[in-house]
Design a protein around this nucleic acid. Structure first.
Lengths: 376, 376
DNA sequence: TTCCTGTTCCGAAACGTTTCGGACACTTTA
DNA sequence: TAAAGTGTCCGAAACGTTTCGGAACAGGAA
């Protein structure tokens, strides 16, 4: 019973340990920046480097006992695989990293929606054992060039694209490069890839809410032109108007010059110049709506007595300004999770195609009320 | 003139190209995932791999002509060095990455200050040719453990620590591990390392402003306990009070339960219960101040007629709420830049020690006014 | 001529990992 | 008893880069 087995595990450790010692004799250990290497683990476990590697990586042709010894040795030595070496040998192995490209002009996280989204994504990313690489174009660099640089260096296994443009060159590039990616929103050019889109047709419920309150002249502050989300929200808004039997009056639709409060403020000024002005205004995000509120208060107008305001996103602040903001709630945490889950799925299965739709929900608060002087 | 030089560059390319061809003959090229390797470049330039490497890396012992050929060949082939191989050979070479640890509970970017800071940091990071790695502890993982994991895997050359705790274990860990890092704020345990701190003594100017307006009972909404910034701002606040000859009344100081608006709101409720209540309140960040505003409006109190409110940070929103918020302006963009610059300096020169102090500036807006009924 | 010096070059080894192709000792099947 | 199969194991090569230790050569000094 003791003799026949090739590797007597119990008392006969010596012969193996001996060969290991020989190994250690020739082998030079103090090299990997002080950290133990696979060779060290192998020496300690009394195995060859090959078997140790296979044991640690869960391959099949390694005896149960050897695997235990390898694992134990690795544990005792505090062995951590050298990623560089692993990636050098097998370029296919991923980086366990997902990339998020920030385009410097518009994608600032001062936008609380984007901030919350990022937070949610980071959490979900770490839940999948990945890390998140944040990068932006250098001065005078094209966003696509930055993306290309990152892809060339294989810095990430996949990418998240935010603030999608109507005809986004980044989508085109990543598609043609065969790199997994996921988008929030859907551009016009629709290729096979994964995306998470908000159902902007929920603007219908906002319009419906205002119509119920008696509003007939409903204005809109649209997002800056050129972004996928801008067009879609606008279309869904006009659709909602006609569905409720209201005319689409171009003088009641203004496009903001930024995503921030200042854009909302100037846009509101423009809307007030309409003849007659709207009795209710929907800002296509909360920051625009808040800017509009500021403009109204500057004119001595009361909300909602003189005019009603609706936002979009439901950032946390919406419940703390005065009046509290009626808005369309986006489940931002869920959006972040979905984005990452879809991306991870895309990394596992490239050229898959999937679309997840998330529908916002109307939160009625103080900034909307019955129309003052009914204008039927 | 044509003969004597060893490497006739013009017509005599052949002999070298020949050896290159021989090299290419033995060499197998289609390996590096389709991308050209140093061997390919060498073949094309008619040089050895060694010389090509030295040429591309700007070493001295390579003829000017050879260097040009190497550079040209690399350019034509679109050669990109394989980072894994480089790092395998020379573990000292950095990752050109800086790490930012997010602790999931408090460090959400819904805080617009942190969001803006992050944006500024990303920009500055890319300006230095680095990228930013964002990571957070996995569920049930200690922040220090997450940091340790990242350090072990050598994911970043240095780290930024935000939302510093009073006695921050992350500082202790990174210090002892000898990893470069930079902090925003200064913890109690002060080791040799680089940091950027805001001069919270500028609270003195806020208190002075209120005193000038006749206020004698000045309350404060402090940041949650346990953070470096919380204690420091509180100390500077009480110092400012005594410097202006005012007593420190504990009933006028409440500690918020969060960094967000809801924390400010409940804290304000507590302050209103004081007897008599304060005529002015300083929120130790803008979100707390905004929460306080909401609480006051809920009680039918007017700002600044009945009570004055001051914030801290000057987030962009401060100019758009009503009333606009008097607050201490932090140059967040500059803070982000400094943070990264200090970190890069620390990476170049480890165990350097430096502190940069940035002083906020008081922005007087609508939320502060003369005290209603003077209580001398 | 011979010896040195400085410039420019190259082969080979090394970094730490994975994997290919076999090898060995048994056991089962024919 | 020979042949085929099984379960384990290992040496050696390979990934792409950098660098060590010379080597080849030209020009100048002796």
């Amino acid at each position: 019973m003791t003799e026949p087995t090739v590797n007597a595990p119990t008392a006969t450790e010596l012969p193996r340990a001996e060969s290991a010692a020989a190994n250690a004799g020739t082998g030079k250990s103090g090299s990997n920046n002080g950290r133990p290497t696979l060779r060290d683990v192998a020496g300690r476990a009394g195995l060859s480097v090959t078997q140790t590697s296979r044991a640690l990586n869960g391959h099949s042709d390694v005896a149960e006992d050897s695997r235990r010894r390898a694992l134990a040795a690795a544990d005792e030595l505090g062995y951590v695989p050298n990623l560089a070496a692993r990636r050098l040998k097998d370029p296919g192995s991923g980086t366990q990293t997902i990339g998020v490209l920030l385009t410097s002009t518009t994608q600032r996280f001062s936008d609380p929606f984007l901030g919350d989204l990022l937070t949610a994504m980071v959490d979900e990313v770490s839940r999948h054992g990945f890390e998140m690489l944040l990068f932006s174009p250098t001065v005078d660099e094209d966003p696509v060039a930055a993306l290309e640089r990152s892809v060339r260096h294989k810095r990430a296994d996949g990418y998240v694209l935010l603030r999608l443009q109507t005809k986004d060159p980044r989508v085109a590039f990543l598609s043609s490069a065969g790199v997994p990616f996921v988008t929030l929103g859907r551009p016009v050019v629709d290729g096979p890839y994964r995306r998470v889109v908000g159902a902007e047709d929920s603007l219908d419920s906002a319009v419906g809410h205002l119509v119920e309150l008696g509003h007939r002249r409903i204005g809109a502050i649209a997002l800056p032109a050129g972004y996928a989300i801008s067009d879609r929200r606008l279309i869904h808004f006009t659709d909602a108007l006609t569905r409720h039997g209201l005319p689409v009056d171009p003088s009641l639709i203004t496009t903001a010059e930024s995503f921030q409060e200042d854009g909302g403020r100037s846009a509101m000024e423009a809307l007030l110049a309409a003849e007659p002005p709207p009795t209710a205004v929907i800002g296509f995000n909360d920051q625009l709506a808040i800017g509009a509120l500021a403009a109204l208060l500057g004119h001595g107008l009361r909300v909602p007595d003189d005019i009603s305001i609706v936002g979009f996103d439901d950032v946390s602040l919406a419940r703390f300004i005065s009046p509290t903001l009626t808005t369309l709630h986006q489940p931002v945490e869920r959006l972040g999770q979905l984005l990452i889950q879809q991306l991870v799925a895309a990394i596992d299965d490239p050229d898959s195609d999937h679309e997840v739709v998330v529908k916002p929900e109307l939160m009625v608060r103080e900034s909307t009320g019955a129309v003052a002087s009914a204008t039927h």
